[in-house]
Design a protein around this nucleic acid. Structure first.
Lengths: 341, 341
DNA sequence: CTGAAAGCGCTTACAG
DNA sequence: CTGAAAGCGCTTACAG
């Protein structure tokens, strides 16, 4: 320890810097001064070895194809660093096997806990340390998530209020709990007398070939006026396909999505979307983790998944296409601040 | 050390597991067996304390608004973990001040080196450990980057081959080296007799208000037939605005971008784009870092930024709008594999 | 071929 | 109020 040599004391420095033990104010000041004069940075390795805690968390993410990744990763990193924790990332790109491997890499690095957004259909096993799962409330062992079902209700209520009756709900993969919740919520709010057809893109592409058109123009001809996708990504695909077919949006059809991605407000027309409160979700996940980590320290009891019941965080509608097809909108919609590039 | 108690030896285990020292093959086998029977994971903290290396790298990224973030972060993480290193992320969201703070957080965590994608106009100072900068070849101290200039030439050559003569080049911020390189490359290949106008979105919005239309239809009326943006993000904005104005793409105008984002191939019409080879860039950055880290270990000489000259990695054109406006295409374009959701 | 010893830089009781 | 001592779990020379 550098400060030792330069002053009088030994590991009083540790106490001084940590505010532990009773040290005279004057000495503390002198030590502090010396410390940042020398640019002293305590060795985290030594500290970790001694205390048994690295103050590093792991973040395991499914493949990047989900463009929500940056939002949530940023939120997690922010929440963690606000609590003095670092975040080690581990992309489980590819397979479920890679997810397991990613987790092992984190364990080898002695993370104090792990936040995981699991791959589809993965059941996370006991990991020997605290774990917070972010997925959907329908996923067993999920710790926290957006209330995707309620989010689905929000879009559908909004579209119904604009006078729509004939919906196409667009999803990618029926095996996804998140997507099913969103679509379930939408269906639960289809207005009386209205109809909603579900289009699963993956199935469509298996039948018609990769990246083939979704044939949405045909749906419009058969009466559909509103397209609600489980992601802005699919909403964008729908929007451009409609536009390209000469169908005016929102003139002849409305398009809505989920997640309020970076470009959703920038395109023409801007997409109506539903967004999750990533900051709150991250905060809850991190808090749950830290709480379990402390419990681990105190008694060695509380291991494994953080909490049995999922906390659901409400989602928010961002209404950007407020012109109805059949009916003029009668109530003012909430409009959020714009999103620059 | 657990294995000790269960066998006969002491810290021979260390040597056995590491393959150092000369241990009998038989003993090594027995130790290995015991080790994974007990699920033994060596303490990285203790090892770091002893060896002086954490085998963790830091990754500092500018604000998420750049949708290239996931691609590059994934590539870095992949390259690092392939070399046995972990990656601690630090989002420098917000200001330059936060970037400095992010770097400090990483230093406190004892990373062996840092990969940074610096914020606009930031000059990175000496950090006391190896540093790799990913930016543009025009940025001083940049270690590795895509050859944005050449990428610009690729799009322009492609558009010119389709018969275009009248271009609108769309950028966001003229202070960005990356954007300037891309636009510079484009301008350098405008065909003889052709003309190119530059539209800087940030300036446009300062003049006309946030998220205001880019008035591209007017440009088409005045003869523009090709819109080339420095990012697929802006290309998307242009595309939707044109389509919304009833201008057929690619019938009456072509739209091209950069970075080949996840959705670029999925929209209608798909965007022609130029992509960087993120895997190679990440590999070069990581290799440079590891090399400097080893040098650090051997002699304490080579500190600071990894290499004086920037390595430029060529970009690749992904041609998806191959129909010319004035001329039918005469040469076959390269078409890449499609990009599923 | 294998073991005993020292030490990486901290923190945490425990004496003074 | 401050210091001396032990120990976290490894690895690395160095003896046997």
């Amino acid at each position: 320890m550098i400060a030792t040599a330069l002053n009088v004391s030994a590991a009083t420095v540790s106490n001084a810097l940590a505010g532990k033990g009773r040290i005279s104010a004057e000495l503390i000041d002198r030590i502090r001064a010396k410390a940042d004069e020398l640019g002293y940075v305590p060795s985290s390795a030594a500290r970790a070895l001694r205390t048994g805690h690295t103050r590093v968390l792991g973040l395991v993410l499914p493949d990047i194809s989900n463009p929500l990744f940056p939002q949530i990763a940023q939120a997690i990193e922010y929440a963690a660093s606000a609590s003095g924790y670092g975040v080690l990332i581990a992309d489980s790109r590819g397979s479920v096997a890679m997810q397991t491997e990613a987790i092992n890499r984190l364990i080898e690095r002695d993370v104090d806990g792990i936040v995981i957004i699991p791959r589809l259909g993965t059941r996370i096993v006991d990991i020997g340390r605290p774990l917070a799962v972010i997925d959907s409330p329908s996923t067993p062992n999920s710790t926290v998530s957006a209330d995707h079902w309620q989010g689905g209700q929000l879009v559908m209520e909004h579209l119904a209020a604009l006078g729509h009756q004939n919906f196409v709900l667009i999803g990618n993969n029926p095996a996804s709990n998140v997507q099913n919740d969103r679509i379930g919520g939408m269906k639960s709010r289809v207005p009386a007398g209205g109809k909603a057809e579900i289009l699963w893109i993956e199935q469509h592409e298996q039948a018609h070939g990769k990246a083939s058109p979704l044939r949405l123009a045909e749906k419009v001809e058969r009466g559909a006026t509103a397209f609600a996708a489980v992601s802005d990504l699919h909403a964008l695909r729908a929007l451009t396909e409609l536009q390209n077919a000469g169908i005016a949006v929102p003139g002849r059809a409305s398009v809505a999505g989920f997640d309020d991605l970076a470009w959703s407000a920038m395109i023409t027309p801007a997409l109506t979307s539903v967004r999750m409160d990533v900051a709150t979700i991250a905060r809850i996940a991190i808090d749950a983790l830290l709480c379990a980590i402390e419990a681990d320290t105190a008694a060695d009891a509380t291991r494994g998944v953080v909490s049995a019941e999922t906390t659901s965080v409400p989602m928010t509608l961002v209404a950007r296409q407020t012109t109805g097809v059949l009916t003029a909108p009668t109530h003012p919609e909430k409009t959020p601040a714009g999103e620059p590039a």
